[in-house]
């Protein structure tokens, strides 16, 4: 953009912004109101956050939270019959599809970090994960050192693969890093011996292992490579919509309703195979539920 046009642009912006003050909707809320539809981006296999059940319908913990947020949007717009459109996303398509307006709210397993915050925005944290890796139980790969010189896979477009690459360079690990199209494809690489380990958010690994053909065959590492918060993703610079999302999530946390939703997905049998992941609420997450935050900073959660 030419800088000499800047004053003109500011003038134009002020002109456009003026009516907005008069309670007119902007951004996503306006889009939803005009189209009567809100589009949710979901994942195929982010168990138990957002994944397909036996009937290939997206379900999960993040989906349940999203539907609560959609209820709040309906209330805010006084439009009880807003249609929900569902659009599949992958780790590599979710951010461009959010930016280009294909999806309005992403309900998956997306890490909230400072770098992504420059492109998109996030609601309140709803889960805290640690980076760990899954390997064959017979390989006993528990420590970071055990990854040295090994072939390690992760999913394209995730913060995990980035962390893996950074670890590889900073500590001179000599690993061969592979990238897979989605989590099941990456897990399959370990299952079939194409890779020794799959580095991913520990909770997703638990879901994949629990649903595999032979869960006893796999082992999730004790060591981890740091911690990250998950949240719902939305477009940037959309304070009105973010407020609706944040308020809805805060209400969900404060009322204790979140614990019911949590139990449903983490401490009860879940579709498709009726497996119970048995993962109680972590201390970090308990703190978030008590004091909701949308901070991308891992230190806040330690």
């Amino acid at each position: 953009m030419h800088t000499r046009k800047l004053p003109l642009l500011i003038a134009a912006l002020m002109f456009v912004a003026a009516p907005a003050i008069a309670q007119e909707l902007t951004g996503t809320l306006k889009k939803v109101k005009d189209s009567g539809t809100i589009t949710i981006g979901y994942r195929d296999a982010s168990i138990p956050f957002s994944y397909l059940d036996q009937n290939q319908k997206p379900i999960g913990y993040a989906m349940d939270i999203c539907y609560k947020v959609v209820d709040a949007v309906k209330a805010k717009l006084k439009m009880p019959d807003i249609k929900i459109a569902l659009n599949p996303v992958t780790s590599s398509t979710r951010i461009p599809l959010m930016a280009n307006g294909t999806i309005d709210l992403e309900c998956g397993s997306t890490t909230n970090n400072a770098e992504r915050k420059k492109q998109v925005d996030f609601g309140m944290t709803y889960f805290v994960i640690k980076y760990r890796w899954v390997s064959k139980a017979s390989d006993h790969m528990d420590t970071v050192d055990s990854l040295k010189g090994q072939t390690v896979v992760s999913t394209a477009g995730t913060t995990d693969i980035k962390a893996l690459n950074e670890l590889n360079t900073s500590k001179n690990m000599g690993m061969t890093v592979l990238s897979a199209n989605d989590h099941p494809a990456a897990f399959l690489m370990v299952e079939t011996g194409r890779a020794k380990a799959f580095l991913m958010d520990d909770i997703l690994l638990s879901g994949l292992v629990a649903n595999s053909k032979n869960p006893a065959e796999f082992h999730i590492s004790k060591d981890s490579l740091g911690l990250e918060p998950y949240s719902l993703m939305m477009r940037r610079d959309d304070p009105e919509f973010k407020k609706v999302v944040d308020d809805a999530m805060t209400k969900l946390y404060k009322s204790g309703e979140i614990e019911t939703i949590y139990k449903k997905w983490f401490e009860s049998p879940i579709p498709p195979k009726g497996i119970n992941l048995n993962i109680p609420i972590s201390d970090a997450l308990q703190k978030v539920f008590a004091n909701p935050t949308d901070s991308p900073d891992p230190k806040v959660y330690e």
Partner: peptide, 26 residues
């Protein structure tokens, strides 16, 4: 196209925000 079409749509109908184009239409 999956990433670009919404911007083209916005440009065509002079919308300030990208237009939602679903997976099928895209």
């Amino acid at each position: 196209f999956y990433f670009l079409v919404p911007y083209i749509g916005a440009w065509i109908i002079r919308s300030p925000t990208p237009v939602r184009v679903g997976a099928f239409l895209s």
